[in-house]
């Protein structure tokens, strides 16, 4: 008995359940943690596909960096989710119907009769010394150098957009300007009011 299908179905089931949990749990911290679980199982599936570099990157970058940041943001923000859930029942029926129709259609089209092993040959297993990472690196910096550079430009645009949209002086925030605080003079703050001393009548 081959162990591969068992591993595949185990991780696939966890992946699907975790993904469903991401969008259904009420607590957004749990949602983020379920997303981490989904990434982990996804990485496991990629290992099965012998794409070990991609799966390691998924764990390192997404789980290690992106999701940690995500968790921080989720914990810092106080999101009122009653507002977000408003109209859920109103949209449930039409939305659910559309989703079911699309799922059924997709099941018919991308099912085994169109994507089975008789249609596409079983990919050949690589030898143990075949380096996925090396091959990827080769392709990325030669054949796909143009898309690779474009992806870099895309990230640059994202940085510029994020900074230009958030770096601004909000009118409602109070801030201190140390230079102004140091340069302040006595006359700016203290006003000496001369008053005639009242004489107590005898």
């Amino acid at each position: 008995m081959n162990i591969e299908p068992i591993v595949f179905y185990l991780f696939s089931t966890i992946l699907v359940l975790a993904s469903v949990a991401v969008v259904t749990v009420r607590n957004s911290v749990f949602a983020a943690l379920f997303l981490v679980l989904a990434f982990f199982t996804c990485a496991a599936l990629w290992i099965l596909l012998e794409a070990e570099f991609l799966s390691l990157v998924l764990v390192l970058v997404y789980v290690g960096a992106v999701m940690v940041l995500f968790l921080f943001v989720v914990m810092m923000l106080d999101i009122n989710d009653t507002l977000l859930r408003e109209g859920f029942t109103k949209y449930l029926i039409p939305g659910g119907l559309v989703a079911i129709v699309i799922i059924v259609e997709m099941a018919i089209v991308v099912g085994p009769e169109n994507f089975g092993l008789d249609k596409f040959a079983d990919p050949v297993a690589r030898a143990a010394d075949y380096s996925n990472t090396k091959e990827l690196g080769m392709l990325l910096y030669t054949d796909y150098v143009y898309p690779f550079e474009l992806a870099a430009v895309l990230l640059l645009v994202a940085i510029i957009a994020a900074i230009s949209l958030t770096m601004r002086r909000r009118p409602e925030t109070k801030y201190q300007d140390p230079a102004k605080q140091i340069l302040v003079r006595r006359e700016d703050r203290v006003r000496v009011v001369k008053m005639e001393s009242e004489k107590i009548k005898e």
Binding site: Y144, P147, L150, S164, L165, R168
Partner: peptide, 26 residues
């Protein structure tokens, strides 16, 4: 001339446009 290039070009254009629409933050 490649689907990856098409997608990246599209996203590059769109991402810049999204930010430009929101540029007047207040």
């Amino acid at each position: 001339n490649n689907m990856i290039t098409i997608f990246l070009g599209l996203e590059l254009m769109s991402l810049a446009l999204y930010a430009m629409v929101a540029f007047q933050r207040d």
